[in-house]
Structure formats: structure tokens, C-alpha cells
Amino acid sequence: MALDQSFVGRTYPPTAPYEVGREKIREFAVAVGDANPAYTDPEAAKSLGHTDVIAPPTFVFAITFKAAGQVIEDPQLGLDYSRVVHGDQKFAYSRPVRAGDRLTVTSTIEAIKSLAGNDILDIRGEVHDEAGEHVVTAWTKLVSRAAEGA
């Protein structure tokens, strides 16, 4: 069933702050096998001009995607998540995410399209720090594949 176009432009309330921990960044860097010392060694990060260890570029997705849950699970929107695949992902950074950040995400539905029975949903997540400064914007395109025989 095609998603309701009237949801385009809808913005959801900002999430409660997510506090970025050094050890969570380390865990993520180890999981992707990335030994860049900027992720684990505060001195190495400082030598690059950062105030603490920074997170790998895609780390923030865990935070923005959790926030996008507000959209995905919105019963009024009615997305069939069991049929959803991740189509595109993009980030634009004002600065890297770093340990100690307390980040909130504001999710907005940018577009809803229907193509050959597939529902395509574009969600923008604006990530701000505690001071209200922009850190990164994440764009996530989700494709809900048409049900068989639909």
C-alpha cells in the first residue's frame, strides 16, 4: 500500500541526548578493523587538532537510525519494516563526532515515493551537540519492497 504523501515534511521531536563514550568509539573502530589512533588515543586525536578521540565517519548512523525509529515505527505512517532495505546513505559533517558529545537527533521525512509498488522513504536526521551546534546531517533512503503478488 502506498505511503501517505501528507507525511512529507513532517518533523519528529528531538531525541534525548546520546552521550558518546570513548569505549563505544573504540568498540566500533575494532569492529570495523580500523586501527587509526584518532579513534582510540586521545593524544593522537589532539595532535590532529581534536579535543578528544573522534568517531569513524559512519559511527553516527547507529544514533541517527535509532532516531529514525520514530518514523519507521510511526503507526500512522504504516511502513512495513519487514520488507525494508537500506537504499542510500549520506552524511555531511560540520565536525567529527567525538567522545563526550551529547547528541540529539531531529528526524524529518524529506520524501515519499512509490515506484513499481516499492515505497521509498527519505529521512533526514539533523544531529546537534549540547550547545545546539550542528555536528552532522544523515540522509537515509529506505526502500520497502512490494509484497509478492501485490
Partner: peptide, 8 residues
């Protein structure tokens, strides 16, 4: 890694 301004 902080030099990455955009990535998609």
C-alpha cells in the same frame, strides 16, 4: 578522519 566533510 575529521577531514571527511561528506560521504555518501
Amino acid at each position: 578522519p575529521g577531514a571527511v566533510a561528506e560521504y555518501g
